[in-house]
Design a binder for these strands. Structure first.
Lengths: 238, 238
DNA sequence: ACTTGGTTCAAACGTTCGTTTAAATCATAT
DNA sequence: ATATGATTTAAACGAACGTTTGAACCAAGT
C-alpha cells in the first residue's frame, strides 16, 4: 500500500526520458522502446505506470503546465489587485505571460530549455488527442489574459487582439522550438542551447521587443476605414 | 518510351493526396496506405514513381517551392534593379517575401491554403531528412533576402535582423499552420479555411502590420547601451 | 515464516508499417 | 498481329509498433 521509492524513481525517469525524446523526435517519431531504453526501465513500465503512450505524453505536459498555469494566473491576479481596477499595461501583460514561460527555461527543475522546446514543437502536432489536451490545459489562462488585453487596448477590436495574441504565440514558439529547425534556414547560429540558464534571458531581451512592436503596430486598413494612408512611413528600426 | 497519360495522372493524384494528408496528419502520422487509398491508386505506385516515402515528401514540396523560390527571387531582382543601388524599404522586402507566400494561398494551382498550411507545419517536423531538405531548398532565397534587409537597416546589428527574420517566419507559419491548432487555444474562430481565395488577402492585411511592427521595434537594451530608458512608453496600438 | 500488494521482468500478442516481387495489363511502334 | 517497354496489380516480405500476459521479485504487515 505504501509508496515504494523505486516507484517514483521509475515514473520520473520515464517522464524525463520521454520529455527529451518527444522534443527531439516528435510524438509519432518516438517509440516506447526508445523511451524505456533511454530511461533504463522495462518496456512494460510505461503501460503499467501511465496506461498508454498517449497518457504518458499528457503526463509529461501536465507536470510542467501545472506550475506554468498557476504562476501565470498568480502574476495576473497580483497585477490586477495592484492596479485597483485600472487596465494593465500591455507590456506588463506580455511580460507576465511570456516571461513566465521563459523563466522555465532557466530552471532545470521546471524542465529547462528541453521542455520549452518540446512545448513549442508540440503545439503544431496534428494528432487530435494532443490538440484536445492543449485546448483544455490552456483554456482558463488564455481566457484570462485575453480579457486583460481587451481592457488594456480598449480601442482595438477584440478580433484583432486575438489575432495578434495568436501571432505572438507563434513567434515565441518558433523562437524556442525552431532553434535548429530554422536556424539552418536562416543560416546563422542563434546560440541558444549552449547558453544554459542565460539562454532564456537572452531570448527574452530579443523577443519581447519584437512582440510588443507587433502588438502595437498600426491596425490593418480595412479595420480603421478612416486615415488609411501615411501610417507606415518611418521605415526604420529605432 | 513515350510518356503515357496515365503516368502523370497517377503521379499528380499521389502528390495531391499526399499534400493534403501530410498537412492533416503530419509525415509520421500518414501511412502509404492512407495516401494511395485517397489517391485511388495501387499501394506500390508511390515506390514505383517516387522511390520511397521520403522522396515523395520531397517531391510534394519541390513542385511548389520551385515556383515560390523563383517568384521571390524575381521580385527581389526587379526591386533592386528599380532601386538603382539604393537600399530597399523594409516593408517592400517583407511584402515580396511574405506576400508571395500568401499569394500561393489564393491560387489553387499553386497548392492553395492546403500547401500553405502544410509548409507551416512541416517547418517544425523534427525528422532529420526534412530539416536537411528545407535547408537546401531555402538557402539561396533566405540569403538574398537577409542581405537585402541588412542594407535596408544599416543601423541594426546583423544578428538582430536574423533574429527578427526568424521571429517573423515563426509568426507567419503559425498564422497559417496553426489555424485550428491554436485557434482552439485562443478560443476564437479565426475564420480562415472557409474563406477560399480571400483568406490569404485577409491574412495579409492582418499579419503584415504585425510583422512590420515587430521588425521595427526598439532594439533590446543590451544592444544599444546608451539611452536605454523612455523608449517603451506609448503603450497603445494606433 | 508466511501472506500480501505493488513493481519489474522476459516474452509474446496481433497489427501496421514501408518496401519488394513477379505476374498481369496497357499503350505504342513496327 | 505481335513484340516491347512502361505501368498497374495482388500478394507477400521482414521489421517495428503499442500493448498484454503471467511469472518472478521485493518490501512491507502479521
Amino acid at each position: 500500500m505504501s509508496e515504494a521509492r523505486a516507484t517514483t524513481d521509475t515514473r520520473e525517469r520515464i517522464l524525463d526520458a520521454a520529455e527529451r525524446l518527444f522534443m527531439e523526435s516528435g510524438y509519432e517519431g518516438t517509440s516506447m522502446r526508445m523511451i524505456t531504453g533511454a530511461a533504463g526501465v522495462n518496456l512494460a513500465a510505461v503501460n503499467y505506470h501511465f496506461g498508454s503512450k498517449e497518457a504518458l505524453l499528457r503526463e509529461v505536459f501536465r507536470r510542467r503546465l501545472a506550475w506554468l498555469n498557476k504562476e501565470r494566473l498568480r502574476l495576473l491576479d497580483d497585477m490586477e489587485a495592484q492596479a485597483k481596477g485600472e487596465p494593465l499595461k500591455p507590456s506588463a501583460i506580455l511580460e507576465a505571460f511570456f516571461g513566465t514561460l521563459l523563466h522555465m527555461g532557466t530552471d532545470e527543475s521546471l524542465g529547462g530549455m528541453t521542455f520549452l522546446r518540446l512545448l513549442g514543437r508540440t503545439l503544431t502536432e496534428p494528432a487530435d488527442f494532443i490538440r484536445t489536451f492543449f485546448a483544455g490545459e490552456y483554456a482558463e489562462v488564455v481566457d484570462r489574459y485575453k480579457r486583460a488585453l481587451f481592457r488594456a487596448l480598449p480601442d482595438v477590436p477584440h478580433e484583432e487582439i486575438i489575432w495578434r495574441f495568436h501571432l505572438m504565440l507563434g513567434a515565441m514558439s518558433y523562437a524556442i522550438a525552431g532553434t535548429d529547425a530554422l536556424q539552418v534556414v536562416t543560416g546563422c547560429e542563434l546560440d541558444l542551447k549552449n547558453e544554459g540558464p542565460q539562454a532564456a534571458e537572452l531570448l527574452s531581451a530579443r523577443v519581447m521587443p519584437f512582440l510588443l512592436g507587433g502588438l502595437r503596430a498600426p491596425l490593418p486598413q480595412f479595420v480603421t476605414k478612416q486615415e488609411q494612408q501615411h501610417q507606415s512611413e518611418p521605415d526604420k528600426a529605432a
